[in-house]
């Protein structure tokens, strides 16, 4: 459904997307994961026909995003990062306007349908300006669903929603993703883990990893850990456990708890438990500690070579400076490039 090859986009001298290649099949939810400013929004904007790429080819449903832009736009539902809404229109009028632009024959019925899907049927007559952020987000989502698109592109769809709504929207995305193609970007890693069949981790315009969330986790985990908690003293326990075949090292040892680094791919829990118990120590808890997607994400996005100025404060400064980068291509926000020429 989506085929992207060698896609590149430059903003002046800055390269936002650098030769990325990927595809998405029908009935697949593909997650775009990356820090702010990584190129997620730019890629999505190219796929929706909003802007042409500097180089490379992108096809949606077999149509080229540059040469057959209108055909692509007919088949894509798009929820941009800053939900674009006419605040002085009512929810119904806004959706009706969008439905008319898409030439839907049963426009009013479709509007009612999507309002039901996003649970806003009782706000249809209200002005968008009076809606909460979460509700606006849902109006934006309703707009993307109006024409039952073959491809749904969602830029951070759950941002600003309350927990109950997040669960609802996620289940909605999962439902849609069964038959259609969904490309969503997020920096909520658990969301990617829950929703996506496949995840692309993108950083500084490059794809740094691509796989299912589970496989990514398994592949990148490197070493696994086992955490255990025991009653009383742990003196001597470390040395004891170190002797168990497969245990690489004792990573952490505090009062009552020990964390072991073990060889990946081997389940040593039984061995470890036996060792502890046979030493006469009461075992209270034993659990494997997997490397979370968060850890993998941090690992991958940090391995990238960075300019020295950023590298200095990579730990906490990176995300902050990345946030500023991202704002540059969010239209409608304070310092967007569109406003600079004013």
């Amino acid at each position: 459904m989506i085929e992207v090859e060698g896609l590149t986009k430059d903003y002046g001298a800055r390269r936002a997307v650098d030769h990325i290649t990927f595809d998405a099949r029908s009935g697949e939810v593909l997650g775009f994961l990356g820090p702010n400013g990584a190129g997620k929004t730019t890629t999505m904007r190219i796929l929706t026909g909003y802007m042409p790429p500097t180089a490379g080819v992108a096809k949606v449903a077999g149509f080229d995003v540059v040469d057959q832009s209108i055909e692509v736009r007919r088949r894509v539902g798009y929820l941009p990062e800053t939900v674009p809404l006419y605040t002085d229109m009512t929810v119904f009028d806004y959706l009706k306007f969008m439905a008319d632009l898409r030439h839907l024959s049963n426009a009013e019925d479709r509007v009612d349908d999507v309002l039901e899907i996003v649970h806003l049927e009782n706000r249809a007559g209200g002005y968008i300006g009076n809606l909460s952020k979460g509700m606006r987000q849902r109006v934006g989502l309703a707009q993307a669903l109006l024409h039952q698109p073959e491809v749904l592109i969602l830029d951070e769809p759950t941002i600003g929603l309350d927990p109950a709504q997040i669960i609802e929207v996620r289940s909605l995305i999962r439902d849609i993703g069964r038959e259609r193609t969904v490309l969503l970007s997020t920096h909520i890693l658990s969301e990617a883990q829950q929703l996506c069949d496949r995840v692309l981790i993108i950083n500084k315009g490059h794809i740094v990893a691509e796989d299912s969330p589970e496989r990514l986790q398994a592949r990148l985990a490197g070493a696994q850990r086992i955490a255990l908690r025991v009653q009383g003293d742990t003196d001597g326990l470390g040395a004891l456990l170190n002797a168990v075949p497969g245990v690489l090292s004792v990573a952490d040892q505090r009062d009552g708890s020990v964390e072991l680094e073990v060889q990946p791919g081997r389940d040593l829990r039984a061995d470890v438990a036996r060792t502890v118990v046979s030493a006469g120590i009461d075992l209270l808890e034993l659990r494997p500690v997997g490397l979370s997607l968060e850890d993998i994400f941090m690992q991958l996005t940090r391995e990238e070579p960075e300019p020295p100025s950023v590298a200095e404060d990579a730990d906490d400064g990176e995300l902050l400076s990345a946030v500023e980068d991202a704002d540059e291509f969010v239209s409608g926000e304070g310092q967007s490039p569109e406003e600079n020429e004013d």
């Binding site: 929706t48 909003y50 809404l85 969008m98 239209s331 409608g332 569109e338």
Partner: peptide, 16 residues
């Protein structure tokens, strides 16, 4: 439209 970001909506709708 540009300021409100709705330009993105219009330019990604099937409208020339």
């Amino acid at each position: 439209e540009q300021r409100m970001g709705t330009m993105e909506l219009l330019l990604t709708a099937p409208v020339k």
